[in-house]
Design a protein around this nucleic acid. Structure first.
Lengths: 109, 109
DNA sequence: TACTTACGTAAGTGTCAACTAATCAAATTT
DNA sequence: AAATTTGATTAGTTGACACTTACGTAAGTA
Protein backbone atom coordinates (compact mmCIF):
# COMPACT_ATOMS: atom_id res chain seq x y z
CA UNK A 1 0.00 0.00 0.00
CA UNK A 2 2.90 2.29 0.77
CA UNK A 3 4.15 1.57 -2.73
CA UNK A 4 0.86 2.78 -4.16
CA UNK A 5 0.95 6.07 -2.29
CA UNK A 6 4.57 6.55 -3.26
CA UNK A 7 3.65 5.89 -6.88
CA UNK A 8 0.91 8.49 -7.13
CA UNK A 9 2.91 11.06 -5.18
CA UNK A 10 4.94 11.71 -8.32
CA UNK A 11 3.09 14.15 -10.65
CA UNK A 12 4.38 12.62 -13.85
CA UNK A 13 3.11 9.21 -12.84
CA UNK A 14 -0.32 10.67 -12.22
CA UNK A 15 -0.16 12.17 -15.71
CA UNK A 16 0.81 8.82 -17.18
CA UNK A 17 -2.03 7.15 -15.29
CA UNK A 18 -4.40 9.70 -16.77
CA UNK A 19 -3.22 8.77 -20.25
CA UNK A 20 -3.49 5.02 -19.98
CA UNK A 21 -6.98 5.21 -18.55
CA UNK A 22 -8.41 6.28 -21.88
CA UNK A 23 -6.68 3.57 -23.88
CA UNK A 24 -3.78 1.20 -23.59
CA UNK A 25 -0.54 2.70 -24.81
CA UNK A 26 3.04 1.63 -25.38
CA UNK A 27 5.98 3.25 -23.60
CA UNK A 28 6.96 5.17 -26.74
CA UNK A 29 3.47 6.51 -27.27
CA UNK A 30 3.36 7.66 -23.69
CA UNK A 31 6.79 9.25 -23.95
CA UNK A 32 5.69 11.23 -27.01
CA UNK A 33 3.20 13.08 -24.81
CA UNK A 34 5.87 14.41 -22.50
CA UNK A 35 9.18 16.16 -22.63
CA UNK A 36 11.14 13.21 -21.28
CA UNK A 37 13.02 10.32 -22.80
CA UNK A 38 11.57 6.87 -23.30
CA UNK A 39 13.67 5.22 -20.58
CA UNK A 40 12.35 7.72 -18.04
CA UNK A 41 8.82 6.66 -18.92
CA UNK A 42 9.84 3.01 -18.75
CA UNK A 43 11.06 3.52 -15.22
CA UNK A 44 7.85 5.23 -14.19
CA UNK A 45 5.87 2.41 -15.75
CA UNK A 46 7.78 -0.22 -13.81
CA UNK A 47 6.98 1.67 -10.61
CA UNK A 48 3.31 1.84 -11.52
CA UNK A 49 3.40 -1.82 -12.51
CA UNK A 50 4.89 -3.06 -9.26
CA UNK A 51 2.42 -0.90 -7.36
CA UNK A 52 -0.40 -2.66 -9.20
CA UNK A 53 -1.67 0.55 -10.76
CA UNK A 54 -1.23 -0.55 -14.37
CA UNK A 55 -1.33 -3.82 -16.29
CA UNK A 56 0.93 -4.98 -19.09
CA UNK A 57 -0.08 -6.79 -22.27
CA UNK A 58 2.65 -8.04 -24.62
CA UNK A 59 2.00 -8.30 -28.30
CA UNK A 60 5.03 -9.08 -30.42
CA UNK A 61 7.65 -6.44 -29.78
CA UNK A 62 5.04 -4.12 -28.34
CA UNK A 63 4.12 -3.73 -24.70
CA UNK A 64 0.84 -2.07 -23.94
CA UNK A 65 0.09 -0.49 -20.59
CA UNK A 66 -3.28 0.28 -19.15
CA UNK A 67 -4.58 1.61 -15.83
CA UNK A 68 -5.68 -1.09 -13.41
CA UNK A 69 -8.88 0.04 -11.71
CA UNK A 70 -8.51 -2.41 -8.82
CA UNK A 71 -5.25 -0.75 -7.82
CA UNK A 72 -6.86 2.66 -7.68
CA UNK A 73 -9.85 1.25 -5.84
CA UNK A 74 -7.64 -0.32 -3.19
CA UNK A 75 -5.91 2.97 -2.56
CA UNK A 76 -9.21 4.80 -2.45
CA UNK A 77 -10.60 2.34 0.07
CA UNK A 78 -7.50 2.54 2.23
CA UNK A 79 -7.61 6.33 2.33
CA UNK A 80 -11.35 6.38 2.88
CA UNK A 81 -10.88 4.14 5.89
CA UNK A 82 -8.04 6.33 7.14
CA UNK A 83 -10.20 9.41 6.80
CA UNK A 84 -13.31 7.85 8.18
CA UNK A 85 -11.45 6.94 11.34
CA UNK A 86 -9.85 10.32 11.70
CA UNK A 87 -12.81 12.44 10.74
CA UNK A 88 -15.28 10.58 12.90
CA UNK A 89 -12.85 10.73 15.78
CA UNK A 90 -12.41 14.46 15.27
CA UNK A 91 -16.13 14.89 15.21
CA UNK A 92 -16.58 13.00 18.46
CA UNK A 93 -13.84 14.99 20.11
CA UNK A 94 -15.32 18.28 18.93
CA UNK A 95 -18.72 17.29 20.32
CA UNK A 96 -17.23 16.14 23.60
CA UNK A 97 -15.40 19.43 23.89
CA UNK A 98 -18.55 21.35 23.21
CA UNK A 99 -20.26 19.38 25.94
CA UNK A 100 -17.48 20.16 28.41
CA UNK A 101 -17.79 23.86 27.67
CA UNK A 102 -21.49 23.77 28.37
CA UNK A 103 -20.98 21.95 31.63
CA UNK A 104 -18.45 24.54 32.72
CA UNK A 105 -20.91 27.30 31.91
CA UNK A 106 -23.60 25.54 33.86
CA UNK A 107 -21.29 25.07 36.81
CA UNK A 108 -20.47 28.76 36.76
CA UNK A 109 -24.04 29.81 37.34
CA UNK B 1 -3.24 20.31 -3.66
CA UNK B 2 0.05 18.92 -4.82
CA UNK B 3 1.48 20.02 -1.48
CA UNK B 4 -1.13 17.93 0.31
CA UNK B 5 -0.31 14.78 -1.65
CA UNK B 6 3.37 15.38 -1.13
CA UNK B 7 2.74 15.82 2.58
CA UNK B 8 0.94 12.52 3.12
CA UNK B 9 3.34 10.63 0.85
CA UNK B 10 5.85 10.64 3.71
CA UNK B 11 5.10 7.81 6.16
CA UNK B 12 6.29 9.69 9.22
CA UNK B 13 3.96 12.55 8.47
CA UNK B 14 1.05 10.14 8.25
CA UNK B 15 2.09 8.80 11.64
CA UNK B 16 2.23 12.32 13.07
CA UNK B 17 -1.20 13.05 11.63
CA UNK B 18 -2.50 9.93 13.31
CA UNK B 19 -1.19 11.18 16.63
CA UNK B 20 -2.59 14.70 16.50
CA UNK B 21 -6.02 13.47 15.53
CA UNK B 22 -6.62 12.05 18.96
CA UNK B 23 -5.54 15.16 20.81
CA UNK B 24 -3.51 18.29 20.23
CA UNK B 25 0.15 17.78 21.00
CA UNK B 26 3.31 19.85 21.17
CA UNK B 27 6.33 19.16 19.01
CA UNK B 28 8.20 17.59 21.93
CA UNK B 29 5.35 15.31 22.82
CA UNK B 30 5.14 14.19 19.22
CA UNK B 31 8.89 13.67 19.02
CA UNK B 32 8.81 11.47 22.13
CA UNK B 33 6.70 8.96 20.19
CA UNK B 34 9.34 8.48 17.51
CA UNK B 35 13.01 7.82 17.19
CA UNK B 36 13.82 11.22 15.72
CA UNK B 37 14.93 14.57 17.09
CA UNK B 38 12.63 17.48 17.82
CA UNK B 39 13.83 19.56 14.88
CA UNK B 40 12.92 16.77 12.49
CA UNK B 41 9.40 16.76 13.87
CA UNK B 42 9.29 20.55 13.68
CA UNK B 43 10.13 20.36 10.00
CA UNK B 44 7.47 17.77 9.33
CA UNK B 45 4.97 19.90 11.21
CA UNK B 46 5.77 22.95 9.11
CA UNK B 47 5.15 20.87 5.98
CA UNK B 48 1.83 19.65 7.35
CA UNK B 49 0.99 23.19 8.44
CA UNK B 50 1.62 24.77 5.04
CA UNK B 51 -0.33 21.96 3.41
CA UNK B 52 -3.28 22.83 5.63
CA UNK B 53 -3.36 19.42 7.26
CA UNK B 54 -2.80 20.63 10.83
CA UNK B 55 -3.59 23.74 12.84
CA UNK B 56 -1.43 25.53 15.37
CA UNK B 57 -2.47 26.97 18.73
CA UNK B 58 0.04 28.94 20.75
CA UNK B 59 -0.18 28.99 24.51
CA UNK B 60 2.70 30.65 26.28
CA UNK B 61 5.88 28.87 25.24
CA UNK B 62 3.89 25.90 24.05
CA UNK B 63 2.67 25.29 20.52
CA UNK B 64 -0.04 22.73 20.13
CA UNK B 65 -0.73 21.00 16.84
CA UNK B 66 -3.90 19.29 15.81
CA UNK B 67 -5.16 17.61 12.64
CA UNK B 68 -7.28 19.86 10.45
CA UNK B 69 -10.22 17.81 9.13
CA UNK B 70 -10.94 20.24 6.28
CA UNK B 71 -7.51 19.60 4.82
CA UNK B 72 -8.05 15.85 4.82
CA UNK B 73 -11.52 16.31 3.38
CA UNK B 74 -10.19 18.42 0.52
CA UNK B 75 -7.67 15.77 -0.39
CA UNK B 76 -10.28 13.05 -0.13
CA UNK B 77 -12.64 14.95 -2.41
CA UNK B 78 -9.89 15.65 -4.93
CA UNK B 79 -8.91 11.99 -5.11
CA UNK B 80 -12.50 10.84 -5.18
CA UNK B 81 -13.09 13.06 -8.20
CA UNK B 82 -9.90 11.77 -9.82
CA UNK B 83 -11.01 8.20 -9.28
CA UNK B 84 -14.57 8.78 -10.20
CA UNK B 85 -13.47 10.11 -13.58
CA UNK B 86 -11.02 7.31 -14.17
CA UNK B 87 -13.06 4.45 -12.85
CA UNK B 88 -16.25 5.45 -14.62
CA UNK B 89 -14.28 5.91 -17.81
CA UNK B 90 -12.73 2.49 -17.40
CA UNK B 91 -16.11 1.00 -16.78
CA UNK B 92 -17.54 2.58 -19.91
CA UNK B 93 -14.61 1.38 -21.98
CA UNK B 94 -14.92 -2.13 -20.63
CA UNK B 95 -18.60 -2.21 -21.47
CA UNK B 96 -18.00 -0.79 -24.93
CA UNK B 97 -15.37 -3.45 -25.51
CA UNK B 98 -17.71 -6.14 -24.36
CA UNK B 99 -20.30 -4.83 -26.76
CA UNK B 100 -17.82 -4.88 -29.64
CA UNK B 101 -16.97 -8.49 -28.90
CA UNK B 102 -20.60 -9.47 -28.99
CA UNK B 103 -21.11 -7.70 -32.27
CA UNK B 104 -18.17 -9.52 -33.75
CA UNK B 105 -19.60 -12.83 -32.59
CA UNK B 106 -22.95 -11.96 -34.07
CA UNK B 107 -21.33 -10.97 -37.33
CA UNK B 108 -19.56 -14.33 -37.47
CA UNK B 109 -22.82 -16.27 -37.46
C1' DT C 1 21.95 -14.79 -40.33
C1' DA C 2 22.31 -9.90 -40.25
C1' DC C 3 19.27 -5.84 -39.51
C1' DT C 4 15.67 -3.26 -37.53
C1' DT C 5 12.24 -2.19 -34.15
C1' DA C 6 10.52 -1.63 -29.57
C1' DC C 7 11.72 -1.86 -25.18
C1' DG C 8 13.99 -2.62 -20.69
C1' DT C 9 18.21 -2.17 -17.84
C1' DA C 10 22.66 -0.21 -16.15
C1' DA C 11 25.55 3.51 -14.99
C1' DG C 12 26.18 8.12 -13.88
C1' DT C 13 24.51 12.86 -12.58
C1' DG C 14 21.92 16.58 -10.37
C1' DT C 15 18.42 17.78 -7.25
C1' DC C 16 15.51 17.39 -3.43
C1' DA C 17 14.33 16.23 1.12
C1' DA C 18 14.80 13.94 5.72
C1' DC C 19 17.77 14.06 9.24
C1' DT C 20 21.25 15.74 13.06
C1' DA C 21 23.90 19.13 15.60
C1' DA C 22 24.24 23.78 16.61
C1' DT C 23 22.25 28.18 17.00
C1' DC C 24 18.59 31.56 17.61
C1' DA C 25 14.02 33.41 19.48
C1' DA C 26 10.17 34.08 22.60
C1' DA C 27 7.78 33.41 26.81
C1' DT C 28 8.22 32.15 31.91
C1' DT C 29 10.49 31.84 36.19
C1' DT C 30 13.77 33.12 39.74
C1' DA D 1 17.82 41.13 34.30
C1' DA D 2 19.66 36.38 34.10
C1' DA D 3 18.46 31.70 33.63
C1' DT D 4 15.24 28.21 32.00
C1' DT D 5 12.04 26.20 29.05
C1' DT D 6 9.94 25.29 24.60
C1' DG D 7 10.42 25.62 20.05
C1' DA D 8 11.81 27.07 15.37
C1' DT D 9 15.62 27.84 12.13
C1' DT D 10 20.21 27.17 9.89
C1' DA D 11 24.07 24.59 8.01
C1' DG D 12 25.67 20.55 6.51
C1' DT D 13 25.31 15.50 5.36
C1' DT D 14 23.31 11.61 3.45
C1' DG D 15 20.22 8.89 0.70
C1' DA D 16 16.60 8.59 -2.56
C1' DC D 17 14.98 9.35 -7.07
C1' DA D 18 13.93 11.41 -11.58
C1' DC D 19 16.45 11.93 -15.41
C1' DT D 20 19.84 11.08 -19.49
C1' DT D 21 23.10 8.42 -22.21
C1' DA D 22 24.73 4.08 -23.39
C1' DC D 23 24.05 -0.70 -23.72
C1' DG D 24 21.47 -5.22 -23.67
C1' DT D 25 17.56 -8.06 -25.35
C1' DA D 26 13.68 -10.17 -27.62
C1' DA D 27 10.68 -10.32 -31.52
C1' DG D 28 9.82 -9.45 -36.31
C1' DT D 29 12.07 -8.49 -41.28
C1' DA D 30 15.29 -8.57 -45.37
Amino acid sequence: MDAVIQAIAEPRRRDILGLVVEKELSASEIASHFDVTRPAVSQHLSVLLSAGLVTLRREGTHRYYRARPEGLAELRDYLNRFWKDQLSLLKELAEAEEQTKKEKMDAGR
